[in-house]
Design a protein around this nucleic acid. Sequence first.
DNA 1: ATGGGGGCCTGCCGGC
DNA 2: TGCCGGCAGGCCCCCA
Length: 283
Amino acid sequence: MPELPEVETVRRGLAPVMTGQTITDAAVNRPDLRWPFPTRMAERLTGAQVTGLRRRSKYILADLSTGESLLIHLGMSGRILISGVMQGDFHHDHPASAKHDHVVLTMGNGARITFNDARRFGAMDLLETALGDAHPLLAKIGPEPFGNTFNETYLTRALGGRKTPIKTALLDQHVVAGLGNIYVCEALYRAGLHPARPANALPATAVAGLVPIIRDVLAEAIEAGGSSLRDYRQADGELGYFQHRFRTYGRENEPCTTPGCTATIERIVQSGRSSFFCPKCQR
DNA sequence: ATGGGGGCCTGCCGGC
DNA sequence: TGCCGGCAGGCCCCCA
């Protein structure tokens, strides 16, 4: 499910109900997700106060008063839902004991934080907060797209020498953090770049243009609460609505929406993933 | 070092 | 109604 905008939306939803609260109970309903949970995870979570919620790439990090941080990745189908507390004007409840509810945290304020993941490509781990990005899953991830180190100079170097298609390169988390299949397709459409263009053959102007385009598409998606396909929800149960602004993703055979363009969106497969693009607008 | 493909899982949808 | 293939927002790992 989740790319950077969806993960950031979930983080923002969790922050007000988790920050400053103590985890009074941790129900761990299976031994693993993609990998085994860390030893005694439930015990290490119970009684800990959540001092802050951060995001790095597509990971959520909950810093705990114990000196550890809970690392969460949603994989493809992971969801986090809040229940048991009033959320704004509405109370979104979550059916008790739903299928694939793998971890449920109960907070001191009564909130229940449920991690549900049908496909179990998600992950959870505990690491020493002081380790920072030294965790194996974080160590090799590229710069945050909204950070200063993600700029034209950096991107030129990162793409240089890479013959791989620009689509594949931008999907590579070592190049830039947080992009997934949807937002790469949308960014390349905005940039007017064909997804099969070799990454190392882009003109300097195209590379320079990608930096603000990537930031814009992600920022707009965050503002819209992410994109809701299939089962994605914000943590409060609300749907995101950026999917209504897709120009290419999932629009195979539909008309290109660029004013004056009469072409239809095409789909190709690159590195086993669908790429959607307009053959006239993207070269 | 780069890149391609397999594999991990479950669910859903369309076609027969 | 049922079965089957194809597809899905991610990413690690192995191989060339």
